[in-house]
């Protein structure tokens, strides 16, 4: 193994490990986050880092098809953020309206 190959292997081994640690820290943020928006942002960050990990694996294992999963991950993460934000907004508005109704009656 030449020095160059060793460099590639080292780089492709170290960078995913660092990213994995970052993902764990994001998970801490997602668990700690006082508001729901905190958690959504943290989960979105985790998705981005996972995409980079998958892309690095695709280059390392020379399997180009793994990048497809990156694209799917990006789509699903975007969809999840928009859907969660919208659904929670709807739920919050409904709860607010119900409370107002109850207060108005009593």
């Amino acid at each position: 193994m030449t020095l160059l190959e060793t460099g590639y292997q080292g780089l492709f081994t170290v960078v995913p490990i660092i990213l994995a640690f970052m993902v764990i820290l994001c998970l801490v943020r997602a668990i700690k986050g006082p508001r729901i928006a905190d958690r959504i942002v943290a989960v979105n960050m985790m998705g981005t880092m996972t995409m980079v990990i998958i892309a690095i694996l695709a280059i390392k294992m020379e399997e180009g098809y793994l990048v497809d999963i990156c694209i799917i991950y990006a789509m699903i993460s975007f969809l999840a953020v928009t859907l969660l934000a919208k659904v929670y907004m709807g739920v919050y508005a409904e709860k607010k309206k119900k409370e107002e109704k109850e207060n108005g009656h009593t």
């Binding site: 928006a37 959504i40 907004m89």
Partner: peptide, 22 residues
């Protein structure tokens, strides 16, 4: 992937900000 994220990420941020403000 990058192009997709450049389209999607600002919208996701917009949705989260709107959610938080409302």
């Amino acid at each position: 992937v990058v192009v997709f994220l450049w389209f999607a990420s600002p919208v996701a941020s917009h949705m989260v900000a709107r959610f938080e403000v409302s």
